[in-house]
Design a protein around this nucleic acid. Sequence first.
DNA 1: GAGTGGTCTAGACCACGAG
DNA 2: TCGTGGTCTAGACCACTCA
Lengths: 252, 252
Amino acid sequence: MALRHQEIADDLRRKITAGEYALGKRLPSEAALSEAYEAGRPTLRDALDVLRAEGLLAKRHGSGNYVTRPQPPVRYFPTAYPGESDAVARSPLRTSVSAMSVRAGHEFALLMGVSPNAWLVKYTYANHEGVTPHSLVHVHVPQTVAERDLREIRMVHSPWGEDVRNLLAKAGVRLTVTEERLTARLATAEEAQLLQITTRTPVMAIERVATDAKGRVVEVTRLVLRGERTAVVVTMPTANRGGEVPGEGSTD
Amino acid sequence: MALRHQEIADDLRRKITAGEYALGKRLPSEAALSEAYEAGRPTLRDALDVLRAEGLLAKRHGSGNYVTRPQPPVRYFPTAYPGESDAVARSPLRTSVSAMSVRAGHEFALLMGVSPNAWLVKYTYANHEGVTPHSLVHVHVPQTVAERDLREIRMVHSPWGEDVRNLLAKAGVRLTVTEERLTARLATAEEAQLLQITTRTPVMAIERVATDAKGRVVEVTRLVLRGERTAVVVTMPTANRGGEVPGEGSTD
DNA sequence: GAGTGGTCTAGACCACGAG
DNA sequence: TCGTGGTCTAGACCACTCA
């Protein structure tokens, strides 16, 4: 069963890659296209959604649908180390940071093993790719883990909150283990508004929990990244594996 | 600006969590609900999509919308080691495997540094969570990297293709580095059909590339996992970090 | 066969953006 | 101001499920 909006997407994709609709040019209006394809506008919009997800189209509200080329995605490396923190120079993102004090609340209390009334410092990173919002980062640190004021961030070394880790390091906090939990889901209504996307756009949601030598959770960070504009890269050496096939010694 | 389908979703969520619609019970039909809310059916269905993404609803074509509870997501660990491969016992997934020989083609030729005409062994893993398809895994291995026949897999140790790594290990191939590249995107038409989801469902797409000591790429695996049913967990020791704040020796 | 969800058309009104 | 995309209603037809 061929879906109508897929058929239309296939035809438009062909025309785009054939150059019939040139790079940077505006497509005919959705009304005109839906008439040309003898389709309803929702159906035609579903077709455009397919091409947008492929990076071939960009929508501009009030202006039109424009032909684009897929761009290489922004790369996110789990637990990037300070040594790599020229990341900000290589990153295509512009980052702005703010900080405020908040109460832990039940959710963070559970995660961090503190009282729900405990004070946290919450850093908010907003990353933009050109003028387009790309990702949101919220870093939470208990106000008690460092004696000096953590609120001050002079220079952004990474879009992903690495500066807070640097501040923690300077304050003598040694992180031992960082666990990251990644899911692919649709944007919530709030995220959609902040990232200027719709709730039908996939995002990569990451929860990062860092623990110090005493087992205390000293950083909980939540990241929401535009899914189709982000690649999470995990590189692991396989050399230190056991090397044995389990349950089979030399069954050659 | 409050969106109508969000308002309806909020109201339905309230009724579900309040027990007005009990767990396991069927909701009124979409036609009835759209009339009750004085909304169009597409709008009502958008509202149901929100609740489905939250794990509160499950759709059954021809039957109805049923109240469910969010289940803990399936966990995927990048480059799980054979030592952990009782994973299959802990996993809630049922796995079936098949293998076939295929030509590399241009895409894999580029990735693996082989000729497009080279033969690969392609393993396909289909994972089911109960009766629901959860994920698809395609493992590609050059037929030349191992002398023995790789086609035979006697027992599944992991839903993610770990068995192939075990076979490689037995054949004397030592993997040194594995890189995984993760993105969140919408399902393609083909994936949607195989996973019994719609093309508006987010998936976690993973490309895994394993290299041996000689720098050869000996395994390329593509995984497509239902996004809202999967958590990728990355745990990294932070102890072996440089520990220095870059560019600032003792600027205290 | 009756009822359900899956998809589509037709048409409307609103919010945004450029001239 | 006017054309654009964003959202919504109304109604239709088809495919699937189950009694």
